[in-house]
Every structure is written in structure tokens, then in C-alpha cells.
Design a protein around this nucleic acid. Structure first.
Lengths: 324, 324
DNA sequence: TTTTTGTTCGTTATGGATAAAAAACGTCTC
DNA sequence: GAGACGTTTTTTATCCATAACGAACAAAAA
């Protein structure tokens, strides 16, 4: 049956929100919470009931007054707040990128579902949604074949990416001055400068900035297929880089420099310079991705099981792979 | 539970195959039938059991001898041989294309499933597979929004199609002589000539030929994203033209002429001519699709003249996008 | 030995059940 | 009367059951 992860996640966020109120004060109406937590009022009512049962609030006629502030023990464990779909996605991407499966290999959905600890239906559901990425293919018999996160895949991905990005960038140049994209681009440029200043300490924030930048450009295409394709890029890069931290700092700094050149060309509306800087950046991204794949594929140190912790223990280094 | 449509379809094909045998002769082994009907031996055994139960064959030790030839009443109705997925797709595309559904409208999956006479699970399953076409979008709440088969959609589709097709065509030109694609292109060219000869009577066959031609070109890209994108094109065109037979003959003849020019340019490996003929054809295809959409959406005026010339009338600008 | 058949087991496609969540609809209060 | 609340109705997420289908294997026949 349907899991109440929506409730639990909203409940946790609701606990945090209780901190904004003083003891004995009214915490506000159900609709306002519905809006704030982005869930239906039905769920808000369930949360309030739980708050009341836990002695956090008390009903006083129509008012709901805060009795005490929440403590750590009030929260649901993080792990219980994940949707099955998200769990499957995470596990599946790990399975793919960790690379126990060879290109062309048939996928046993049932065994995978057991391995991931989800039902066969959930697995099927996920696989159904996945094939648009071109990594999976459906056999006529109904089973699935993993096409492989190969160099070919990366090459083809990058080829289309380059086409789309250049097209979008050139269209960006012809946007009217009052388009909000210009302001966003300007902000992104400033954020690059700020991040470069602190590159030593905060360079991992680059990933989010990178996505923001390229989405900003791709959005200018006003083409749902181009914009949608960036979801694939985003997914692949997101997961891939998560397991390839090698030379991350140098890589990111170089990418930021390229971005700045690129942004400058856009702002000058210099089509030739945009073309050049865009192509240059795409070429770098391609090389990075390819190198990254080889890094995963090569020398799989068999002595080391992949240390997928359910949750990283504190003090544990996040996501390093010592074989690099 | 799982429907036995595979069995029924194979059974019908098996009945037809029984006609090849003489009364009282051995109809052959299970493996040979498994191969011929492209189903597993398990299914063949089920079919043979049904044949025996229906008095069509009799087991004589290890031999299976034909008792009588099948008659019309032996066949399962065609309708029962369709997979649920196929039924949903057909109904859904029909609903979209002639439908009263407006762009941006929320889709009620449960009601649709009732309307189509399938289970909610099947509907959900289908919707999960569908969104890659960019026509549907998932709301965070889990429901679906129909983005609309609008002119914008068609424009964006055609834009990407043009990019991909040109890229593929230019790569086609650089294929080595011994690549089988050249032979296929040559056959396709001949089939065009043959079809033009009989255009009066067989012009509906053009649809299949058109797909074969463009797939042949797109395959040259050797890029799974480009090749995969043609599935979207194919689906849209397939279903759309099915309900827009207006001016079909003129449309098809014009397209075939353009194809022949295009093919000739490819065979001469003349990149400039390829670029020109490809772009011209893409522009025509775009106009055809747009007109076709308007034909569905607007008052279907059967008397109206075909509003798009096979070749662009002089002075008409190709590929204008009024919103830029 | 090679092919065919009987049998068993594992996997997939679909429908159905159920609790969660959202939406809709009144009623009530300030 | 606008917004808040209580209640009912509808829709969704997930799991499960089951028959269909496929694949592998052993025994039997050619």
C-alpha cells in the first residue's frame, strides 16, 4: 500500500517550522501550513494530530498553541522519508555506475528488486520511466537490456549536448534586453566570481552552479526537447561526478574560468565569441566525462567492496574512492 | 493476471500454418513451430493442446497428425489478440489528437482508465512510459498534465528534427562506399520511383516508405539519441496523418519529389546540395505538420484548399518563428 | 549422438487491494 | 463574507496474487 513518506517528510519539516513560534503562541491555520509545507491540508491535519499526540501543541478551541519546542528525538529518521522511487533510482544508478554489469547484459528485474529491497512492481515502474535516457532497452519478451554507460554513450551524449547548447547559446544572444534570463546570467556570473575567490574551501558547490548556468542557457532555446534533454545530462553528470572526485578542484576551477569567458561572450552578444567559447567548454566537458568513465571502468580493485553506507557515518569521508 | 494474448495471436497464426499440411500428415516438431511462430515452446505446447481439443490434430505416439483444416470459426477474434499496452496507446493517441483536452489540462488517470476500459495500473504503466515524448508532464503530487499537441509542440519537434536530420545527412555523405546504407538508399530511391509511377493507386504506401527513408538517414548518425528521437517523430506523424487524409495524395507526391532530390544529393556526396535539399524538405514537413494540426483543431473545412505548397512559393520565408 | 518431448522453475504482465494523500464540499466562526 | 475547519469523496503509490510466458534440464525416442 501507499507509504506515508509524504507525511513523514512534511512532519519533519513541520517540526523545524515550530521553532519559529514562541511557547503558548498560536501556530497558525491549516491552510497556511499547507502552503508552507507544500502538501495538502489533509496531510497538515495528520501532522497536527501527531503534534498534539506528541505534546507539542494543544488545541484550544480553534487555536493551536505551542506547548514545547521539538527536540531531536521528535524527528522521524531521515531514511524513512524517502519515496520508493527515489530509493530505486539511487540504488540503480549506483549499480550502473559502479559497473558490475557489462554493456549488453540482460537485466533481471526481479533479482534487482530483491537486491534493492523493493517490490518487483516498483522496479518495473522505475525501469519503465528510465529508458528515455538511452541506457536501457526493452526486449520484445519484456525483459530489459542494459546498453551500458560506455564511452560510446558518453560520446553520443556529448554530441547532442554540444548541438543543443550551441543552438541555445546563439538564441540567448538574441534575447531582448528585458528578458529575465539576462539578470539571471549576471547573477550567475557574480556567483562564479564569488566561488572562485573561495575556491579552496567551497569548490564542491560548483556542481549546483554549473547546472544553474547550463539550464539558464538551455532554457533560452524555448524548446522542450532541448530543455528536457538537459535532464539526462544533469542526471548523468550528477551521479557520475559523485563517484569521481579526482582532480575535482582543478577541474572545477578550469570549468569556472571557461564559464566566465562564455558568459562574457554572451553578455557582449558576440555570436562568434559565443560559438567559440561554447564549443571549447563542450570539448572540455566531453574530455572530463570520458576521463571520468575510464576512471570508473579501469582497475577495479577487487579487494574493496564498494562502501555504500546507508547513511554516511559522521567523520567518514564522503564519497571518496581510494582507488583513484 | 497476465493475459494470454501471446497465445491467442500465435494460435491464430498457427491455424493459418496448418493449411500448409495435408490431412493425416505429421505437422512437425514443437521446436520447429516455436521457431516459426516466434514464441516459446511452452506456448507451442499450449497451442497444440488446443488444436487437439478442437479436433484439428491428433496425437499418434510422438507424431501429431492433421485431422482437418481450420475454418473461420476456429480463429480467435482479432480484438482478443491485442496487448493491453497497445490498446491503451491507440486509445490514448486518439484521445489526444481528436480530443477535447486542452493544453495544460490535468489528466485524470483513473477516469481515463475507466474510459478506455483498462485497469488503473495499465494506465499508470503507460503514462510512465510516455512522458519522454514531451507531451506529458508529471506534477509533484503524482498526477499528470497534458502539455498539449499544440503548434508550439510541433514547432519544437520540427526544430530538433531539422537539426538531427541535417547532422545525420551530412554524416551519411561521409560513409564509406561499402556501407550497407548506400545499398539501402539506392533501394529506397527505386521504391520512390516505383511508387510515383503508381501514385494514383498506391499513394498510401508512402507513409512506410517515408519512415524507412528517414530512418535510414538518421541511423547514419550512429547516435542513439538522434535515432531514438525519430521514434517520437514517427509516432506523432503516424498517428497524426492517420486522421488527416486531406490532400494526402498531393502531399505525398510533393514529398516524394523532394526525397528524390535529397537522395540524389546524398548519392553525389554533395554536401551543399544535401544541406539545401534537407532543409527544404524539413521546411515542407514542418508546414505540413502545422497545417495538419490546424486542420484537426480548427473547424474541419473539407473544401479548403491545401494551404501549403510542395515547394515553398517564392517570397515565402522558410522556418520563420513568429514568436522570436 | 542428436533431436524431441515432459517437467520444473524462474520471470513478466496484468488486475486488484489498501492506505495515503489530495481535492471537493459544506458548515462554522470571526 | 472571507477564511478556517470538519467531513466526504476521489485519486494515487505501492505491494501482492496469479496466470502466462520463457528457459533450462532430464528423459526418451530417432
Amino acid at each position: 500500500m501507499k507509504p506515508n513518506t509524504v507525511f513523514k517528510r512534511a512532519y519533519n519539516r513541520g517540526l523545524a517550522r515550530l521553532g519559529d513560534y514562541a511557547i503558548a503562541s498560536d501556530v497558525g491555520s491549516e491552510p497556511s501550513w499547507s502552503q508552507a509545507l507544500a502538501v495538502s491540508r489533509t496531510t497538515v491535519r495528520a501532522i497536527f494530530s501527531a503534534f498534539a499526540a506528541g505534546g507539542l501543541i494543544a488545541y484550544d478551541g480553534r487555536r493551536k498553541v505551542l506547548l514545547r519546542h521539538p527536540v531531536a528525538a521528535d524527528y522521524y529518521p531521515e531514511v524513512e522519508t524517502e519515496q520508493v522511487g527515489a530509493v530505486v533510482e539511487k540504488q540503480f544508478m549506483q549499480w550502473i555506475l559502479h559497473g558490475d554489469c557489462k554493456p549488453g547484459q540482460q537485466i533481471n528485474a526481479l533479482e534487482l528488486s530483491r537486491q534493492f529491497g523493493v517490490s518487483a512492481s516498483a522496479m518495473r515502474d522505475y525501469l519503465n520511466r528510465f529508458p528515455r535516457y538511452g541506457l536501457l532497452e526493452r526486449r520484445p519478451s519484456g525483459s530489459w537490456v542494459f546498453k551500458g554507460f560506455t564511452e560510446d554513450f558518453a560520446e553520443e551524449l556529448c554530441e547532442v549536448r554540444s548541438m543543443f547548447e550551441l543552438r541555445s547559446a546563439l538564441r540567448f544572444v538574441s534575447l531582448a534586453d528585458e528578458e529575465p534570463a539576462w539578470a539571471e546570467l549576471s547573477r550567475i556570473g557574480n556567483d562564479h566570481l564569488a566561488l572562485l575567490e573561495e575556491a579552496e574551501s567551497r569548490f564542491t558547490d560548483f556542481s549546483a552552479l554549473d547546472e544553474r548556468f547550463h539550464r539558464c542557457i538551455n532554457d533560452a532555446s524555448r524548446n522542450r526537447f532541448i530543455v528536457g534533454f538537459y535532464d539526462v545530462i544533469s542526471l548523468i553528470f550528477h551521479y557520475h561526478y559523485q563517484w569521481n572526485k579526482r582532480h575535482e578542484r582543478e577541474r572545477n576551477i578550469a570549468a569556472m574560468r571557461e564559464h566566465l569567458t562564455y558568459i562574457d561572450a554572451l553578455q557582449r552578444r558576440d555570436a562568434a565569441a559565443v560559438t567559440q567559447s561554447c564549443n571549447a567548454h563542450m570539448a572540455t566537458a566531453r574530455l572530463t566525462l570520458l576521463a571520468s568513465i575510464q576512471g570508473v571502468r579501469e582497475t577495479p580493485d577487487p579487494g574493496r567492496a564498494w562502501p555504500f553506507p546507508g547513511r554516511l557515518a559522521s567523520g567518514e569521508r564522503p564519497q571518496t574512492r581510494s582507488r583513484h
